[in-house]
Design a protein around this nucleic acid. Structure first.
Lengths: 211, 211
DNA sequence: ATCAAATCAATACGATCGTACCGATCAGGT
DNA sequence: ACCTGATCGGTACGATCGTATTGATTTGAT
């Protein structure tokens, strides 16, 4: 009875599920107690798992944190790409932009959790050049995407001397990121943030069409 | 010779200087190695000071971190209020707004250091409701100030149903915060950030005047 | 001159940390 | 049937952690 059920050992024993369960424990600790409270033992305890198992999947603490960082980054990226697939490029770029920027603002409690963890890892990455590069690339990718959609909306070719519209894209991205931050601290509500982002996006879109 | 010079012990022995020297060591560690690397011993070592002295000024680690949090917050606030004093309310609100938002974007290397530390403590505060309230209040104060200056620029009274201009203030504040974040990660240069913020602020000011 | 308080340096203690290691167990290929 | 490797639990080790404590030293008030 106290013996583990068969199937928990050996080669193909639900590797990915166990792995992500451990990472989820990391997220929970980061979200509720802060990144500096993450230790192998606490993660194991939170995941209801032995220390040895955590070590097996993530030999060092740095491996664990890097994997967690990668996981949150992918989670955030998949949120955006999900929207890009459902509202495919058949739709008009304005709709896609609306959906995309909305995904960058935490609305539900689950969103808040994800964004808090993302901010924690972003701060963690500030002192790790290797991780910081990934954040930088992620933002550059997002900005490029916004610029592309702006061009598609205006009917112009997104080729040379796109600095003007990249500037616009950076503005929209920065605005959204800042709104997400203000939402996380509780300075504004998610509804206010959504409204401000949407209003500004509409203005940018209208201005580009009117030219 | 190896004895400490007189004046280092006893009652009024440069209390504040020693205190802030310790806090500065905290900032350096947070900036270069991350917040989770802060320990009493490392702080003492970095400040070239004994562990006992750190303990004397900050009995517990939480006291130390809270004091450091307060210090960075005050440092950031003094940057803004400094500008509000030099360019007093005699100047036109547009100039004050320009200067104010500029101070919220890191330009020099010292700025980068300060902003990295601020972001670290902001993240640290996310899981501490008591500290998070201070951040929230700080942002609300900034937003209120921006809204007031916007009103003063437009010549309207900043009284009832100010939700519209508070929205504009939130937009400008969020944009600036987001630009600061993008600057910290290296996605954009401080010059780009300054340009985007300035352009948007000018547009908001012009729009308000034209109405 | 005396004394209480301020100001440290030094040390010690228990807890927790990251990690290495060992042995048991199980799956899948041979 | 056997064996290799994946998978895990348990434990131990050295380092570091936060903090308490003790005693020395100095200052400023009396």
């Amino acid at each position: 009875m106290e013996r583990p059920r068969p199937g928990v050992r050996g080669r193909g024993a639900a590797h990915d599920e166990r792995r992500s369960a451990i990472l989820d424990a990391v997220f929970t600790i980061v979200d509720t107690e802060g990144a500096e409270q993450v230790s192998i033992r606490r993660v194991a305890e939170r995941a209801r798992v032995s220390v040895g198992r955590v070590q097996h999947y993530f030999p060092t603490k740095d491996d664990l944190l890097t994997a967690a960082f990668t996981a949150v980054n992918d989670l955030g990226a998949s949120r955006v790409h999900e929207n890009l697939r459902t509202a495919d490029n058949a739709d008009d770029p304005a709709t896609v932009l609306h959906a995309m920027l909305s995904e960058l603002i935490p609305a539900t409690d689950d969103d808040r959790r994800l964004f808090r963890v993302m901010q924690a890892f972003e701060t963690h990455a500030l002192t790790r050049p290797h991780l910081n590069d990934r954040i930088k690339r992620r933002y550059e990718e997002l900005a490029g995407l916004v610029a592309l959609l702006l061009h598609r909306n205006a009917g112009t070719r997104p080729d040379s001397t796109a600095s003007a519209s990249l500037s616009r894209a950076h503005e929209l991205l920065a605005l959204t990121i800042g709104l997400a931050g203000l939402t996380l601290t509780g300075s504004i509500t998610p509804q206010q943030a959504q409204h401000i982002a949407r209003t500004r996006l509409d203005a940018v879109l209208a201005e580009a069409s009117g030219r």
